[in-house]
């Protein structure tokens, strides 16, 4: 039941995006997110949509699979759009009880909706096409220069890798413990808030104990293999840029340029 959460999951298949250097994908995602905030016209969002569509096509990840991850943010999306729609002052279009829907409200709600959806799809595309290992390797490399400022780059990357690795494990564990307690007659879905909170105890206590046990085991296993931080640590598969990565950076720069230019092109007017 909990396995339906696909946010942050890796999707195993072979595609250009899968083969790209993780650094390119991280930078690309950041550029894409930034571009969503640069865009201010239908033209801008149109370009972003085309870019995203091409990326999805290139990723070979089934569109339905990406959409499934969107379920997690559906409520957030609806609430954001509603607030923007109802609470933005401006030129009134129609009246709803004591709230007025304004032209600016509609515009803002649409814009926020599109931004949020694109943002989530864009970043899921990164995690869907990059293994957690690669992702953290990329991050560590990208943040490398910060070491000069004594930022514990390696430790941050390692923590991220472990956290990512533990998400599915803990989800599975939750599922198991929940079933075991249901078999003992526990109910997680009935009663008021207080009853529900109390019903969580038989789930949370074993879950925390198991998380601590696993953390302890992992620390022990790492120590047994002489892990002592990032100092002097080498990689079996060091990241190395290839031609396609250079090409990808070039395309990214081009995309960013188009997005910036779109601000100044009066096509469709200021929506």
């Amino acid at each position: 039941m909990l396995r339906e959460i696909t946010l942050g999951q890796y999707y195993q298949t072979d595609s250009v995006l899968h083969r790209l250097d993780p650094r390119v994908k991280i930078v690309g995602t950041l550029v894409f997110i930034a571009s969503l905030f640069i865009a201010n016209s239908p033209l801008g969002y149109g370009v972003a949509a085309v870019f995203l569509a091409v990326m999805i096509k290139l990723s070979h990840v089934p569109f339905q699979f990406i959409i499934r991850g969107m379920k997690a943010i559906f409520m957030l999306l609806i609430i954001t759009m509603l607030f923007n729609l109802l609470l933005t002052p401006g030129e009134e279009v129609f009246h709803l009880w004591r709230l007025s829907v304004t032209k600016e409200g509609i515009r803002l709600a649409l814009m926020m909706g599109i931004r949020l959806v694109f943002l989530v799809i864009g970043s899921s595309l990164m995690t869907l096409t990059t293994t957690p290992n690669n992702l953290t390797d990329g991050l560590e490399k990208l943040m490398g220069p910060l070491k000069v400022l004594h930022v514990p780059v390696h430790e941050i990357a390692m923590m991220m890798a472990i956290a990512l690795r533990f998400i599915p494990i803990l989800l599975e564990e939750t599922d198991k413990i929940m079933k075991a307690q249901i078999a003992r007659g526990a109910r997680f879905d009935t009663g008021g808030i207080i009853d529900k909170a109390r019903a969580m105890v038989p789930l949370l206590v074993p879950l925390f104990i198991s998380a601590f046990r696993r953390a302890g085991d992992l620390a022990m296993a790492m120590e047994a293999r002489c892990y002592h931080g990032g100092e002097g640590r080498t990689k079996m598969h060091p990241l190395a840029y290839e031609k396609r990565d250079a090409l990808a950076y070039l395309l990214l720069a081009l995309y960013l340029a188009v997005m910036i230019l779109s601000r100044f092109v009066p096509v469709g007017g200021m929506l």
């Binding site: 413990i177 075991a180 307690q181 078999a183 007659g185 105890v201 038989p202 206590v205 074993p206």
Partner: peptide, 19 residues
């Protein structure tokens, strides 16, 4: 509810569900 009262299931590693 009746089924779960009638069929008791002890899971693999049941000690992990003590709380």
């Amino acid at each position: 509810k009746n089924l779960r009262a009638s069929v008791g299931l002890v899971f693999q590693y049941p000690e992990h569900q003590l709380f």
